[in-house]
Design a binder for these strands. Structure first.
Lengths: 151, 151
DNA sequence: TTGACGCCCATAAACCCCCATGTTATCCCA
DNA sequence: TGGGATAACATGGGGGTTTATGGGCGTCAA
């Protein structure tokens, strides 16, 4: 299967390196990505990581904004900001740069979360908090659709 | 019969493996699944397990949403981030990863519960508690419908 | 020089292939 | 109908391979 799926937490070593989960690496290879791009999420303390198609996705998102307004420009600056390529070393590890740490709050451990076409990098504690909120919203959606909480 | 029916409890061995009930395996084979997709239930400490088509259905649902709104993001976070593929080994066993144990509370034993188009994985004690609540709700429903507790 | 980064290797744990064993259910035949 | 052979199954373990993680060392640039 060639989708980024599931989540796991890996430790950062003394040199600032962390292993990308083996399953994610095989997806990267299957998709033929030679480079990984890491972009700052617009509304979460996470990084979106993927191949060139991830850039397309972000550009579509930004294109939705009125080009005469400042927002589109700000968004582009924010996400593309520094060039954030991630290089996989020979052992399948990436280095946690300050660029990533500042936005995510990552310290000693990294949570990898599959998102289908791409994956995300989180600080594990923040991920847990975010996950709880997501579940709550989805539950409300379901209850609203079924006509009431009694189901 | 090509539906997942009945329930049973199997033990986890020292390596973290547990046999999927033979009957479930034959259903899996009849349906032509080469891998299993497991998803953390939204509101229960259980995993839903089915074929890749289960994931396809979620992805088709997501495709109906505006990809840049929160709902689409939440849905993807749920079915991709809280999902995983399970590999059946040659003896028809799966391994209980931390990913599954964290959500279900599974320790030494696993309860498999047939649900027709898919099946579920529970920690046996929690399943018993959940079963009791389900029966209670159904009983109340019936009593309310018949106008009183006298049936 | 120092620190960031590349390449290489070591090791412990996790994982997956294969086969063995004991138990239960099924079947067949006397 | 009873009893033994057989098959199916859950479970245990050996051993090789993969993975995550730690660390050594050389290079290059500030």
């Amino acid at each position: 299967m060639d989708r980024f799926l599931s989540s796991s937490v890996n430790r950062i070593d003394a040199k600032g390196r962390v292993s990308v989960p083996a399953h994610f690496r095989s997806v990267v290879q299957k998709r033929g990505y030679t480079e990984l791009y890491a972009l700052r999420c617009l509304d979460q303390p996470a990084m979106d990581v993927g191949g060139p198609d991830l850039l397309d996705r972000y550009e579509q998102r930004i294109a939705q904004e009125d080009p005469f307004l400042q927002t589109a420009d700000d968004m582009s600056f924010f996400c593309h900001g520094d060039g954030a390529f991630l290089k996989l070393d020979q052992d399948g590890r990436i280095t946690m740069t300050d660029f990533i740490r500042e936005h995510t709050g990552i310290g000693q451990e990294v949570a990898f979360v599959g998102r289908g076409q791409f994956f995300q990098i989180w600080e594990p504690g923040r991920l847990a908090g975010h996950g709880a909120k997501v579940r709550e919203r989805l539950l409300k959606l379901r209850q609203a659709a079924s006509g009431g909480p009694a189901q």
